[in-house]
Simulated assay, not measured.
Amino acid sequence: MPALLPDEVLLREALEIPDAAPVVLRTREPLGAGTVTGFEVIGADGHTATYFVDTSGRRVAQETGLATGTPDAPGERIWLHPQDPHLPALAPVAFGDAARTLLHRIGREVVEAPELVAYRAGRRAVFRVVCRDGIRWVKVIRPERVERIVGLHALLADAALHVPQIEAWADAGLLVLPQASGRPAVDVAPPASVFLDDVDRWRAAMADAPLENRARSGLPERAEWYTARLVPRLAPEAAERLRAHAARVAAVVGDDGVLTAIHGDLHFGQLFVDDVGRMSGVIDVDTAGRGSAADDSAAFVSHALASAALDPGARGGWAFTVALAALERWDDPAVHVRERVAVHLWGHALGADDLGDAARRDVLLATADALLAGEGVPKDGLMDGFGTP
């Protein structure tokens, strides 16, 4: 039997969960100086609850569960979803009338209870809310980020960059946005060349946006975090290969070169197109700022490759086609695009391994190896289940 993660050991001890009781790992990602890990705990009566173990060391305004350390120097903490101490507005939206009240203030009548559609513990949550006049999206974020994100959305919307304008916000960490114009790009699946032409035009226009803050990147730190956790789980030869790659990558991905305004987390899941496949909407610009254009290129390519590995059907086939075309367009040794893609792929590989999917982990690592060797993207694994596009 594999050894338990330290976070699971801590959870079992804190909640006095019997050894025989099932505890299932659901999510795990870096946060602050540590991690935040989500577990599904199944009680003797069959009732399921989701707990998070947080070793980030980040200070919060108020603890919502079990905690060690002090307010100024937090240790480990455990909370029951949705009582996320980093997102104090999450529980009021999930169980209360916070979203309904905020929407009512701007004349929107809610006709269905908010539906949680995305959640990253300690970072953000997104709710879909059906109103009388259409869909609204309520984002729950850390309170200290509200002012910057509201200003960022206003600036990019005014620059005609297809970014939806925020309709309302609350200092507690709530944003209300309308539905993006168009449909998700993957649902329409426009030809890769047409789609990427539009992406290029959008990136060129975005580069001129007068942003002053730095975009999210941290690739050297992320590369170290991913490899430190992957290496112990790999066979000796694979572990040694990853160590060698990591040393090479760390030396180059921290050099951002010329800074320009970028999305900060660009991928096709953030992009919407109209019925004829032309770009019409861009979402999740919270990460935007000044950074290396190569970071957006790498995030886009890696997400498309990881999506292909997840879906052997038509959507995965389209993602693979787009990934190859994007890499051909944006591959640039001078700014180390392939090295940046590899870091993202290591992150996807770690996520797959955390969920017990060693086969997908190995496919993603092999893809990163091929890119770092200057080779093409291997079809095996990524292309299982559908023909060559």
Rank of each mutant, 00 (worst) to 15 (best):
L11Y: 01
I17S: 07
E29L: 05
G34S: 13
Y51S: 05
S56H: 10
V60Y: 01
T64C: 10
A73E: 15
P74S: 09
A98P: 01
G107I: 09
E109M: 15
A125P: 04
V129P: 02
V129K: 04
V130L: 11
I135F: 08
V140E: 02
E147T: 15
R148K: 11
A154F: 00
L155E: 09
E167L: 15
D171L: 06
G173L: 01
L177Q: 05
P178Q: 12
D187L: 02
P191V: 13
D200L: 09
M206H: 02
L211N: 01
A223C: 15
E224T: 10
T227M: 03
P232K: 11
L234K: 03
V249H: 04
A251E: 15
G254E: 03
V258M: 11
V273M: 13
V285R: 01
R290N: 09
S292Q: 08
D295Y: 12
D296F: 13
H303N: 14
L305H: 08
G313E: 11
A319N: 01
A319T: 00
P333E: 11
V337F: 05
V341I: 15
H344M: 11
W346A: 12
G351I: 03
V363T: 14
A366N: 11
T367D: 00
D369A: 14
F386R: 10
T388L: 03
